[in-house]
Write a protein that binds this DNA or RNA. Structure first.
Lengths: 182, 182
DNA sequence: AGGCTCATGTAACCGGTTACATGATTAT
DNA sequence: ATAATCATGTAACCGGTTACATGAGCCT
């Protein structure tokens, strides 16, 4: 449900190929939505069959030929529909495999879980480092995009920073509690 | 990958039926892992074929008959293996459909997005209310479980509270920023 | 009779991942 | 030569959801 709408979202900014979409996914929404290129191509075909996008074959001499996708009127409608639709499932059907694992970690030695939590902190730090390129990516792609639209990009980044800080602080608290039982 | 291991985790606490598992899933890990009963029954069959659980038919006169599942030695091994295995994908491949939607919300009127964010806060509040039954559930199921194991349950609950507060605070910030453009 | 709890499933579908596969063009 | 970038896919699989389906026994 979501990759297809993400694609429609980006195509509403301008025409793109599957290759472009894969790149833009990885340089913008990657920290809360990752996409394989194979999946993107699959989804583009589906969207074309549904009439939400149309495609134009571009013959190139300096580079391999490509397929440039446009969003159609019915695609825009579908996209706006999705935007305004309720999305409470995100809160209700939240899944976190790491927490599930931690829930059962009483079956391991505290030392083991401390190691896992330290690795978690490490992963968060790396994620945070990758996120630091976001402001740069935003300013790189902002031409032609109105200020109040950029605001939304910044709000998602704000969430990302707050979330990753929460994770790190929480994991530190956990380690502290576990040190007692070591 | 995760429901099956969650099932093994609960079975390592004691023998259960599919029905018991559905109940215990919904009263404990529900806020970071939800499970349909149909899925649980499906997964139990798979686990039995893999030799990770075995089942015992219990004939009852006062209630319908049932199938009581036990974890096997190889099931315990698989479970412990999963526990100590790396889970960095949780951080790296984090998905959040709400953020994806918000990312594109510049295509809507600010009033519309404010409404969506207020709904989000509302959903968070409801989620928070449901979470308040967790301490109760923990104390209800703690008999026979060592103190340091309960600690892990509390750590996941701690995450849940912190996360939901973050969501609410963040959404309030977003609304404030959007009020300017209203 | 009607509703609740207990109890177990099947079938179709769907979004997404993994692995594999190909090939043109450009720069070094 | 060969690596990098550009460019597009297929096929098998998998974890999970949705909808549907059934039925025993208890309590009121």
């Amino acid at each position: 449900m979501s990759l297809s709408h993400g694609i429609l979202g980006f195509l509403s900014y301008g025409n793109m190929t599957g290759y472009d979409l894969a790149k833009v996914f990885n340089s913008s929404v990657n920290f809360f939505w990752c996409a394989q290129n194979s999946h993107i191509y699959l989804e583009l075909n589906k969207l074309e069959k549904q009439g939400y996008v149309s495609c134009e074959h571009i013959i190139q001499s300096d580079k391999p030929n490509k397929k440039l996708y446009h969003i159609t009127e019915s695609g825009k409608e579908e996209f706006l529909n999705w935007l305004s639709k309720d999305s409470s499932e995100t809160v209700e059907k939240n899944k976190n495999a790491f927490l599930l694992k931690l829930f059962f970690s009483g079956e391991m030695k505290p030392e083991e879980s401390i190691k896992i939590l330290k690795k978690f902190i490490d992963d968060c730090q790396k994620y945070s480092d990758r996120m630091s390129s976001i402001p740069e990516n935003i300013s790189k792609n902002r031409d032609g995009i109105e200020d109040y639209k950029i605001l939304y990009w910044e709000m998602t980044a704000d969430f990302g920073y707050s979330y990753i800080n929460l994770c790190i602080e929480w994991a530190k608290r956990c380690i502290q509690k576990l040190e007692v039982y070591k």
